[in-house]
Design a protein around this nucleic acid. Structure first.
Lengths: 187, 187
DNA sequence: AATTATAGTATCGAATCAATACAATTATTA
DNA sequence: TAATAATTGTATTGATTCGATACTATAATT
């Protein structure tokens, strides 16, 4: 039975990934958490760009996240904007400088070249197994999925494109590729 | 091409694993790093149970590790013992209390049950792809393998069992299953 | 015997993180 | 409508992480 083995390899791989992320972030003058928060904010949609959402995504309390965001703002990588309707809510948007930084970093990730040595059939199998494991694990630990709208059960397709069943707002082709904090898989 | 997708899923899975590890360690009154160090020390061999090795394994400097070990010792989860031959070296061994804690924790890991939903053929494929990815990545980043003796190029089998080609000491059946900091894969 | 290398510890400062308390705004309900 | 509760975010405190630097003790080399 190789189940415990996979568990072990996966944990080891995660450790390694974390080490490299730390070294990597440091190279760009950021802390790992800051890098992760900024990356998330370049990938999430307009319902999910708040301090609260960042905290849920990273598994941290809002107080903790608040400080990291403050530093990102001070470094000019992030802009804060209070919501027009609900003045409690703050929207976070990466500046051009912030976006460029993330663009650079995702270019030289160390994981991809190592993965690329496997053949493409194995890659796609790996993809499906890992994805279902991720979903199972999120369910088991009552974490939100934080996936893109096009796989969401609230997403409705019509002749013009897509509509979110929660907000009843129409979504563009780009929109449905973004991460949403309200995402739920079809049951 | 699903390569970037796998990359993304794997990163997401690692994030999730880290969240759970944090929550998990906290439940047992430990910090994540402390838990990881203690886990490593229950799995490593007698050449690899030093502060230095723990640092290499976790990708941290020895100064950083020294503090975490100090806390583990204060909590009675760890014992320090200076080497008989080389008095600079300190050997770290988990106490009974420490071993029990790790035994409990590895019992209710959240990853395993989620993985178990995949069929066993996929599991073993997953195992091999992830393992080679791990090895590739360790090579690319010049990290040590930290794997078990039985896959090491220095390990020599004889009629009595195994011998380490570096230390020329004989290794028991249990020994060759333990993690070694000097481990190198055959080329 | 002197120098150099190695293993580990101690200390400092910036940052993480949880916990708590708090302010501002919105939603609920009496 | 007014009082209460819930939600979003910030500020503060204290334990811990982590890298950097300096230091001690021991071993290896020259």
């Amino acid at each position: 039975m190789s189940l415990p083995e996979v568990n072990e390899v996966l944990e080891r791989l995660c450790n390694l990934l974390r080490m490299e992320t730390r070294a990597f972030a440091l190279k760009y003058g950021l802390q790992p958490v800051q890098m992760e928060a900024l990356t998330y904010l370049t990938q999430c949609n307009r319902y999910s760009d708040t301090p609260q959402a960042v905290g849920e995504y990273l598994g941290l309390t809002k107080g903790t996240v608040s400080q990291s965001l403050k530093i990102l703002e001070q470094k000019g990588l992030l802009r804060k904007q209070t919501d027009k309707q609900d003045k409690r809510i703050v929207h976070l948007s990466p500046t051009v400088k912030g976006k460029n930084l993330i663009k650079h970093t995702s270019a030289d990730k160390t994981l991809t070249p190592s993965l690329a040595k496997a053949n493409s059939k194995k890659i796609s199998e790996l993809n499906s197994v890992l994805r279902s494991t991720l979903i199972e694990m999120q369910k088991a630990n009552q974490r939100k999925a934080f996936a893109a709208c096009h796989t969401c059960r609230f997403n409705e397709k019509n002749e013009k494109g897509s509509v979110c069943g929660l907000t009843h707002e129409s979504l563009s082709v780009q929109d449905v590729q973004l991460i949403c904090r309200e995402h739920e898989y079809p049951s």
